[in-house]
Amino acid sequence: MQIEIGADGVILCSLKLHHNGKEKEVYNLVLDTGAAETIIYRHAVRELGIYLEENDEFVFMRGIGGREPAFRKSVQAVEFLGFSASDFLIDFGDAMEGEDEEFDEETVNGLLGLDVLKAGGFIIDLKAMEVYQKES
């Protein structure tokens, strides 16, 4: 896939999630090799009906502004640039604590992290500006 550095200075990509019999392509994810785990903001997946359930782990993320929760959930299936995996653990959190802002098609919806990139054996070629799976 051709990639580009967006106006914000980062690479944006999308991830397709399948869960509870529904599917959603989540756009405007920052391709982030500095994120160990992929995290999707809850506002982007409301229609998938993803909730913290008894067996899900939740974590506290400590950063600017104190401590914020996120929960890890096994999503039925994920697809990224031709790579797909089932029962994939994804973190779900909020973009910012106590935020009342509205979300639109320009909003960043999360971070596509190393977990997905490694699982698919992806190569990020910043010369040719492409992201693709390495052929075995």
Binding site: F60, G63, I64
Partner: peptide, 25 residues
């Protein structure tokens, strides 16, 4: 959830930087 025997919550360091897809950082 009260089915859990003890309250143990993992804490991680994570920058949560919210941005918009376009516009200056």
């Amino acid at each position: 959830h009260t089915s859990k025997e003890a309250i143990v919550i993992r804490e991680i360091q994570k920058p949560m930087i919210r941005r918009r897809a376009t516009g200056a950082n």
